[in-house]
Amino acid sequence: MKKIFAYSDGLTRKPTHYCPGCTHGVIHRLVGETLMELGLRERTVGVAPVGCSVLAYEYFNCDMFEASHGRAPAVATGAKRTRPNLCVFTYQGDGDLASIGMAEIVHAANRGEKFTSIFVNNAIYGMTGGQMAPTTMPNQRATTCPAGRDVNDAGYPIKVAELLATLTTPAFVARVSVHSPQETVKAKQVLRQAFEYQAEGRCYTFVEFLSTCPTNWGLSPRESDSWLEQEMLPYYSLGIKKRPEDFEGGPKWK
């Protein structure tokens, strides 16, 4: 009998600690599969963040760093600049990347660091127990905005993909989702494109994943998928926001 589905060797066999229904596991799998399919695993160094995926270094089957909160892009810069033949990626949540680590992600992108950032946006702080994130939706309840996010007080959710796409430096910037099998298949293609650009030494690559948090959203996994589709998708539009090719014909400086 032909084997048509198997555990990805891009991941260790360690059971993850993620809550039931959380889509971190799906995103981990997509990364692991992509590293295997592109033959990159043995020269890959990943950088885990602080947040729900703090233990990602236990799950990705490659050399791994654990970084301090928000600094994964700086750690990745140090690794990739000094060993450019490595494939380097950061795996970061929305508190890590869009709040405490905003300076590091913007400047890494702006310098055009040749690594890949995987940004998991589930609109909430998961590990610390459901506090408001920079990506929390307007009126969405969290433990530090129990009446819902008041945009007059906390501002609007940050669209990181769009923000990074405004930078002049060539980059590949995209937003994908894993709330349905169809979107998950598309997400994998985008992720693969990002790692291919890195392997070519082309540009900085950034893939934002919309992800669910059933535990802290107070919804079942199925309800969470629907909530993501109905509440997040209209605000966080999917698609490729920037390609390195876009720079061709862009500003020229003497």
Binding site: R71, A74, V75, T77, G78, A79, T82, A103, E104
Partner: peptide, 26 residues
């Protein structure tokens, strides 16, 4: 060699963490 101007001392110190972690003198 290579010089990288970090965006802050916070970033610079984490860059040396990354460089030393991949076994490079920094």
């Amino acid at each position: 060699g290579q010089y990288v101007q970090a965006e802050s001392e916070v970033a610079a110190s984490n860059m040396i963490y990354g460089a030393a972690g991949v076994g490079m003198r920094v």
